Amino acid sequence: MEKNRLENFEKILRDICFKIKVEGRKIIKNSEISPAQFDLLQIIYFRGPKRVTDISIALGITKSTTTGLINRLENSGYLKKTKDEKDKRVTTIQITQKGENVIKEVIKARVEFMNKVLSQIENPENLMRQLEHLDYTINEVRNNEKE
Rank of each mutant, 00 (worst) to 15 (best):
M1V: 07
M1S: 05
K3V: 14
K3M: 12
L6Y: 09
N8A: 15
N8V: 12
N8C: 13
E10I: 15
R14H: 13
R14G: 04
D15M: 15
I16P: 01
C17L: 13
C17Q: 13
F18T: 07
K19E: 11
I20K: 08
I20S: 07
I20R: 08
E23L: 01
G24N: 07
R25V: 09
I27H: 06
I28A: 08
N30F: 13
E32Y: 13
E32H: 13
I33Q: 00
P35M: 00
F38Y: 15
F38E: 07
D39K: 15
L40K: 07
Q42D: 03
Q42P: 00
Q42C: 12
Y45P: 02
R47F: 11
D54T: 12
I57P: 00
A58H: 12
A58W: 05
L59F: 03
I61N: 02
T65N: 08
T65Y: 03
T66Y: 02
T67F: 09
G68D: 01
I70A: 02
N71D: 11
N71I: 10
R72A: 03
R72M: 08
R72V: 04
L73H: 07
L73G: 00
N75E: 14
N75V: 09
G77Y: 00
L79H: 02
L79W: 05
K80P: 05
K80L: 06
T82N: 04
K86E: 06
D87W: 11
D87Q: 04
R89I: 10
T91K: 15
T92D: 10
T92N: 13
I95N: 04
I95Q: 00
T96W: 09
Q97E: 14
K98E: 12
K98L: 12
G99Y: 01
E100G: 05
E100I: 07
E100N: 05
E100K: 01
N101M: 11
V102F: 00
I103S: 05
K104F: 08
E105S: 05
E105N: 10
V106K: 00
I107T: 04
I107Q: 00
A109K: 03
R110K: 15
V111Q: 06
V111K: 02
V111S: 10
E112M: 03
F113D: 01
F113H: 02
M114S: 13
N115Q: 06
K116E: 12
K116A: 04
V117H: 02
V117P: 11
V117Y: 09
L118N: 13
S119C: 02
Q120Y: 08
Q120R: 13
I121L: 06
I121Q: 06
P124C: 00
P124G: 00
E125I: 04
E125T: 07
N126C: 09
M128P: 02
R129H: 09
E132A: 09
H133C: 09
L134Q: 10
D135K: 15
D135R: 14
I138R: 03
N139D: 12
E140S: 05
E140W: 09
R142D: 11
N143D: 13
N144M: 11
